[in-house]
Design a protein around this nucleic acid. Sequence first.
RNA 1: UGGGGUGUAGCCAAGCGGUAAGGCAACGGGUUUUGAUCCCGUGAUGCGUAGGUUCGAAUCCUACCACCCCAGCCA
Length: 555
Amino acid sequence: MSKKDKYRGKDFIRQMIHHDIDQGVNDGRLATRFPPEPNGYLHIGHALSIYINFGIAEEFDAPCYLRFDDTNPAKESDEYVNSIMEDVKWLGFDWGNNLAHASDYFESIHEFAIELIEKDLAFVDSQTSEEIRNTRGTLNSPGIESPYRNRSVSENLGLFNRMKNGEFENGEHVLRAKIDMSSPNINLRDPVIYRILNLEHQRTGKTWCIYPMYDFAHTLSDAIEGTTHSLCTLEFEDHRPLYEWFLDNLNLSTRPRQIEFSRLNVEHTITSKRKLGELVDSGDVSGWDDPRMPTISGLRKRGYPASALREFCKRVGITKKDKSIEMSLLESTVREELDATCNRVMAIMNPLKVTIKNYPDGESETLEASNHPKKKEMGIREMSFGKNILIEKDDFMESPEEDFYRLSPGAEVRLRYAYIIKCEEIIKDEDGEIIELICSYDPDTKSGVGKSKKKVKSAIHWVSADHSITGKVRLFETLYSDPSPDSDSPLNPNSKIEIDEAQFEQSLSNAKIGSRFQFERSGYFILDEIEDEKLSFNRIVTLKDTWAKIQKKKK
RNA sequence: UGGGGUGUAGCCAAGCGGUAAGGCAACGGGUUUUGAUCCCGUGAUGCGUAGGUUCGAAUCCUACCACCCCAGCCA
């Protein structure tokens, strides 16, 4: 295979990795890492990063570290690390023995800081944070060197040691790399690499009162654990020169390469940890795992299969272009997976009573319905049929529109897997609201036998009023109606609609929590909880609905 | 206005000097006891714009335009 063919069709990151391996960089070894800060729950944007870092490593049979970037004890907690581990696992990835924390390396990182000081490449700055900010310069003008920049190596060593020993208050001193205050890249203007934080760390306890900053800790963590390719999002592109400066000036055995890709944005969603946290704190959602949240745990609660999320990431692709993915792409991968794997079942959200006048009183019969129209091996289940049936309100129209081919006065329709019925009479209450339909059925049209081949315009779903079970259903839409919401966008008032008395066919009484079904002609649902024997389902995604589309177009 | 990036269809995305893959969406049509699924068909004389190099340019060069990111002791 020629080189050109080998790289063709691969995203630019895989091409670079292949190239590096071919060149024998880092002994032709590959190691990646997924480095979340445990200060919030993972969201769908992280799913792409996980998919890229773990997925690529998997292809090369290489390690991918799950490394917690826990360098800021003020913001981090165990709740988050636990949720992150659960989410990565659920997505189908395995870090094996490669679980790490930046805090595991605090000792080494500290030594590297000393190495920098000894090389006169770092100094202790005693300006206030405000002074440092004011002398950093602007995008258009250079910064001003700190008056402490020329302290001697031994003075720096001494001060840094005293910082470490807890002799100072927060903010009294800071360790800065000595690079270039006039660099057009602001990250190179003597960046702070260590700060005093008199704070207990969730893992190292009271061992440290100085903590490394992201750029320093991240670069060194990568190098220390042997990461060869540090794949991250575009906003770190400006940091790469600093990343490389550390690698150039410190004695390290691995030289990792940072490669940046564009982050994933999905329409109608927000993925700022801050905003997500606000939604949780304000009570606008039930928690980080609210089924409307774009968090991994929310998507899981919603019922999205992990395999569909992986497929979604695959279809999204890896590039450096800003992207805003339409929900329809996500939904199509979810439907594709669910269509292939879910048992079909019937449920009525808004029941309309149907009485079959020519069906004998007090009798019932058992009918067979297949669990999947295309997969016989998925079996069948039994449904009771009798005189009293419930259908969906939407499946009847007193004055049918031209394209409506469900039930209407005098019209015939098939009750799926049962009989063809005809609407004979409408019963209304005093407000003119339709409360019942009197229908007749044709006993010769039983599904699968006799005149069962008789054509009618449509088949609708139903349940037996005398056998169905009552339960809850929660219908979800996106949290925001705006395709590109910001933190001020109003929430979609229809993002959650609860139906307390949906009617399910009796076979559902055996359903287990976490199992997914297609409610025929309606959508895919997951059994979320059972309370006092009452089932409650979350709608994962609707079925495609051509009829709704036709109606929408008419308006 | 400094620096770093990115521009191929409504949304993604292949393409790597030889004449614009694929997916999602949309729109037609067929099958169907789910208006689902499935199947078939339709979309760029054009690749941000303008020039240039070349027999030949989305691919190379020049200029311009648009959008994104950066001034935490956050990551």
